[in-house]
């Protein structure tokens, strides 16, 4: 696939990218749709603004950053200011792609996009899947694949596990 890399001017999370915005402004109209895959940050917001000004349909994949939880954690005042001043305005004129129903509910609490579509992340599995671990079917085994973060709800999972009757199914 063809990739254009743009050098960031700032190396913090703002990732200020004027050259990307310029190319999007000058070349974006040749696309039927622009899909923004990123945290809902200044890069995403300015890219979304460019698309809407150029009347290019835009899809935003906020990757879990559009939720009441996100707005209550870290840089809360700045996030609230950006969201209320123009973030919500842009989102309400965009289509949103979420990867789970839970994310869809979270987005709907803070914005009313033109549409919300759920499409889970694609995962490549090995051709030869290992057989299930069978040595002790009476023991419930689980792998938690994620960051250890409050947002992931690991504490809730551990509490809920106490109420599960094993073996399941």
């Amino acid at each position: 696939m063809t990739v254009y890399y743009f050098k960031r001017w700032t190396k913090d999370h703002s990732h200020f990218l004027p050259t990307l915005f310029k190319r999007l402004w000058t070349h974006g109209s040749k696309f039927d749709v622009v899909h923004i895959h990123a945290r809902w940050n200044l890069v995403s917001i300015f890219s979304c603004l460019v698309c809407l000004l150029k009347k290019i349909p835009v899809i935003v994949s906020p990757r879990g950053t559009l939720s009441a939880y996100s707005f209550l954690n870290r840089h809360t005042a700045m996030k609230a200011f950006i969201h209320q001043s123009f973030g919500k305005f842009l989102l309400n004129r965009s289509h949103v792609h979420v990867t789970a129903l839970n994310e869809q509910c979270a987005v709907q609490e803070i914005a009313r996009p033109k549409s919300i579509s759920e499409l889970p992340n694609l995962v490549k599995l090995p051709e030869n899947m290992p057989s299930a671990y069978q040595d002790d079917p009476g023991t419930f085994k689980m792998i938690f694949l994620s960051r250890i973060n409050e947002k992931k709800g690991l504490d809730l999972l551990l509490i809920a596990l106490k109420d599960i009757n094993v073996p399941i199914g």
Binding site: M1, V3, Y4, F6, R8, H15
Partner: peptide, 30 residues
């Protein structure tokens, strides 16, 4: 792309605190 849709990706050179060793501002086939 497999479905026949033309796709271009715009990305940053961000690679953690470092920068990706790539050419910028021009198309790169990845």
């Amino acid at each position: 792309i497999k479905e026949g849709i033309s796709v271009e990706v715009f990305s940053t050179t961000a690679n953690g605190k470092a920068e990706l060793p790539v050419q910028t501002g021009m198309p790169v086939e990845v």
